[in-house]
Design a binder for these strands. Structure first.
Length: 603
DNA sequence: GCCGTTTTCGGCCCGACTGTTTTCAGTCG
């Protein structure tokens, strides 16, 4: 059986072709085209193989007829003759060295040639040895410093600096907020903002980047490096500084005068692709963008016009301000332009935390003898916390009682007991709390697609959340069948943490999303956006897809303590990055409407 | 090689940094 390359393997192949072209001196735009296509495929929501099956490869932006035909050959035969010709005569080892930070195509090629590195398996260790023996510094174009930098790069590569080291968003935000509060105490500070992925609220963050507008840059930078948790000052210059904290995290500061702050904020917020699209668009209007502002390209001497705010910057380009969460070049620029021209399909009115009227996935400590971990607080404590958040309703969704430990009747009794407790709460005159409780349950979908609870117990519930907690290894086809079977029961309203991913720990299982979306749309099931910080699941790109297809979602905290309820906010940021509006999110509905839907009525 | 509400041909993002250099090439974000 032939190996079907997945998206990251296809992307890698295209990157290697780009690198090969760079060495052979190919046209720079062709090189850039391969790089763009590689990145697009790496970030695509569907597997390239599936798009190929449907003849839709060129729907990936950056993939045109040429690359599509090469990939066609790849999927049919497992190889691409044209690519083999391009890479012929180049050492395979050079493509491995591209993983070393600081080494690009030309450097990798030169090192392989001069040091006679041919074995791809041992390329990195051979390079390391050569550097330690001083054999790199003597090569023309290299020196002591670059030899040392290569060793640093190899070290970083070995530590897996790229991925495992990323922080989840709430953790990075907490660090940033502490530093921002500290910086605001410095005299002369007018404004502070996070930058980069942190400001765009990406699910995982590499470095923490921060911007400050101040009339006194030098004082601010001195203030910054004295931040109490600083372990080491990595770098300090006139426009910024980098420190590393005692927790090992790196923080970059950029300082700018108030008059230039808007352009800088825009530039360093990114994303890279958003900025590239913006610049190429501006260029068509004869404008050149940079971190300092906008200038006309027609005359050499034209001065740069600066911008105090991002709003003015975007306005100067003929569009409305774009929320940072949307800046990924996935259509937000076009939408902003349409909006500025008064046309339909402008920027979305993103759902807000204050739109959320209830939480439908959380765990109390009610003794239901669950299959997985239970919550720590009582139903009453959870309800009281919900009221302080302004919620109208709450869905208690403990895990189902473990099947192996209980008889059918025991399970029924446990669920009956919880139902009675909730009914009593709802009708109680004693506490009279203005919040409605729903009797829910989080139910495992077993590997054969059946639910881990007897059928007649489902009737006791207001609704069920079906989730996967085991058997992650099924292939895509079986997993999809399993999920759809699990969701089929009329009492199951929500598909919980749908991809099963744990950030920094594991990838999700494989699903045929086309089928899942179609099913949920047809049978009015809600996809959960689980707000738990290391889940954030659905991921933003699938939220976007759900929005496009009219599939409703629900944002839930998955709280196990009363304090956890505020995690909701992270789910909202994911929804925002997926372009979700209030109408896309079920728990923005008032209590009466939710109740009606759960009873099986239309809204 | 890709792409199109100023183009199906003629364009294609910008600047900083770094190291090794006498004026620049490579890498990065």
């Amino acid at each position: 059986m032939k190996n079907i390359p997945n998206n990251s393997q296809v992307a890698r192949l295209l990157k290697n072709v780009a690198a090969a072209y760079e060495v052979t001196g190919e046209n720079q735009f062709r090189i850039a085209a391969y790089d763009r296509a590689a990145v697009a495929i790496e970030h695509a929501t569907s597997e390239a193989k599936d798009l190929w099956d449907d003849g839709k490869l060129t729907e990936i932006p950056g993939v045109g007829p040429n690359i599509a035909s090469h990939l066609d050959e790849l999927f049919r035969t497992g190889k691409v003759k044209h690519f083999e010709r391009v890479m012929k005569g180049l050492p395979l080892a050079m493509f491995v060295l591209l993983d070393v930070p600081g080494i690009g195509a030309k450097t990798a090629y030169k090192l392989c040639r001069k040091l006679k590195i041919t074995d791809a398996q041992k390329a990195v260790s051979q390079l390391e040895l050569a550097a330690k023996q001083g054999k790199i510094a003597v090569i023309e174009g290299f020196g002591e410093k670059s030899q040392h930098d290569i060793l640093d790069g190899i070290k970083a590569l070995k530590q897996g600096k790229t991925k495992e080291n990323r922080m989840v968003l709430p953790y990075a935000t907490a660090i940033a907020e502490e530093i921002l509060a500290y910086l605001k105490e410095c005299p002369g500070v007018l404004r502070t903002d996070p930058l980069g992925s942190l400001r765009r609220k990406v699910a995982t963050i590499g470095d923490i980047d921060i911007a400050v507008a101040t009339s006194e840059p030098a004082e601010l930078i001195d203030w910054f490096i004295k931040f109490p948790k600083t372990q080491k000052v990595v770098e300090k210059g006139p426009t910024g500084a980098t420190i590393s904290l005692r927790n090992g995290r790196q923080v970059d500061l950029r300082v700018q005068k108030p008059d230039l702050y808007g352009a800088m904020l825009q530039y360093f917020t990114g994303s890279k692709h958003h900025n590239i699209k913006l610049r190429s668009l501006a260029l068509k209007k004869g404008l050149s963008l940079s971190e300092y502002g906008i200038k006309r390209v027609t005359s050499n001497k034209s001065r740069v016009i600066s911008y105090k705010t991002e709003e003015e910057f975007y306005q100067a380009l003929g569009m409305d301000w774009i929320p940072p969460e949307l800046r990924e070049d996935t259509g937000e620029i076009e939408a902003a332009l349409r909006q500025a021209q008064g046309k339909p399909d402008g920027l979305p009115q993103l759902v807000k935390l204050s739109d959320i009227k209830g939480d439908l996935h959380l765990h109390s400590n009610f003794p239901i003898e669950e299959s997985h971990d239970s919550g720590v607080n009582t139903i009453l404590e959870m309800a009281t916390a919900a009221i302080s958040l302004g919620y109208e309703y709450l869905g208690l969704t403990e895990h189902n009682p473990s099947q192996s430990q209980h008889s059918h009747q025991q399970i029924k009794n446990l669920i009956m007991a919880k139902k009675e407790a909730i009914d009593q709460f709802n009708s109680s005159r004693t506490h009279n709390l203005p919040v409605k409780l729903f009797n829910g349950l989080e139910i495992d979908i077993k590997t054969d697609g059946t639910l881990a609870i007897p059928e007649d117990c489902l009737d006791l519930l207001d609704y069920g959340i079906a989730s996967i907690h085991s058997g992650f290894g099924l292939n895509r086809e079986r997993m999809t069948a399993r999920v759809l079977k699990g969701l089929a029961h009329s009492k199951i309203k929500i598909f919980g943490h749908p991809t099963g991913r744990k950030l920094g720990q594991r990838e999700g299982y494989e699903l045929d999303w086309d089928k899942v979306f179609a099913f949920c749309q047809k049978y009015h099931k809600w996809l959960e956006i689980n707000a738990w910080p290391d889940r954030l699941d659905l991921p933003d790109i699938l939220v976007r897809e759900a929005v496009k297809r009219g599939v409703k979602m629900v944002i839930n905290s998955d709280a196990h303590t009363k304090e956890d309820l505020i995690m909701m906010t992270w789910g909202v940021t994911v929804a925002q990055r997926g372009w979700a509006q209030k109408a896309d999110i079920a728990n923005t509905l008032a209590c009466g409407k939710i109740e009606n839907i759960l009873k099986g009525g239309d809204i």
